[in-house]
């Protein structure tokens, strides 16, 4: 799941670089041309670039709508099979893993996400979700917020999870005990401030958040805000050498059960 996304980014960035290059050229060349060869060439180039810009905007929009599409709610499944199956289906489709109460972890197999055995768990609440590296966003969170028995949630390295998402987690305040936000590039101290709603939280991982301006101070303030919770932050990650830890996690998640 992660690989195609990465290559997509690569394509986008090389594409950007390419056009930027041509654009830079046009501005360097334009003044001379306009006097010697008249304006036709410039006009031509300008028209082309206008088109290129429209095309790139179109591509950009497509990328956005792809993320939106991946995050819509499965209203039909929810109505037919209930919130647990809908939530599980969503997480598995995104490439994550779910754990029904008293059962084993179920991971996405990569081929068919929706194994029929899932239907046996219709009445079994989901107690843990591992959505590490998933493209889940604000809208997609709807599918998790209906899991009222959710005790453990991992959103590690989710590229689209931001402060706005954190402001919705209060809906899980009654059950949530463990939350990992490690490595989310868009989470800042502003979003972490909303976690004060989660007074049942026992363990919170906020290590490796590049958008947090002062990690040390933020961790202290989060600890003050959640006195009953063990907060894993900057120092913890450094102390325990995140390298191998990260690796073992990485190998653990994509391998299907």
């Amino acid at each position: 799941m992660a690989a195609p996304r990465a290559s997509l980014h690569l394509v986008a960035s090389t594409w950007n670089r390419g056009t930027r290059g041509i654009r830079g050229l046009s501005s360097a060349v334009a003044p001379e041309n306009s006097q010697r060869k008249g304006r036709t060439l410039l006009q031509f180039l300008a028209n082309r670039f206008y088109d290129v810009e429209i095309l790139r905007e179109y591509l950009f929009r497509k990328q956005i709508s792809k993320v939106h599409k991946e995050n819509r709610s499965f209203t039909y499944i929810k109505e037919r099979y209930g919130p647990y199956i809908a939530g599980a289906y969503f997480v598995l489709k995104q490439g994550g893993a779910v754990k029904f109460q008293g059962k084993e972890w179920i991971r996405s197999t990569g081929r068919g996400y929706f194994s029929p055995q899932l239907l046996n768990f219709q009445a079994v609440p989901i107690e843990a979700v591992d959505a590490s590296d998933c493209a889940i966003n604000y809208e997609g969170l709807d599918n998790l917020l209906i899991l009222k028995e959710l005790q453990s949630l991992s959103l590690q390295r989710c590229p689209h999870v931001d402060d706005w998402c954190l402001s919705r987690l209060y809906q899980l305040a009654d059950s949530l005990q463990e939350l990992s936000l490690a490595g989310c590039p868009r989470i800042s101290e502003r979003g972490l401030a909303c976690l004060h709603h989660l007074q049942n939280l026992r363990r919170l991982d906020i290590s490796d958040l590049p958008a947090v301006s002062s990690p040390g101070l933020t961790q202290i303030l989060v600890e003050e805000m959640l006195p009953n919770c063990e907060v894993l932050g900057a120092e913890w990650a450094q102390g325990l050498k995140p390298g191998p830890e990260e690796q073992s996690r990485d190998t653990a998640s994509p391998v299907p059960a």
Partner: peptide, 16 residues
């Protein structure tokens, strides 16, 4: 408000 080639905006929203 995306503008091609410009960096994304950082609204610094505090959802408090």
């Amino acid at each position: 408000l995306a503008v091609v080639d410009d960096p994304p905006l950082d609204l610094r929203f505090n959802p408090s």
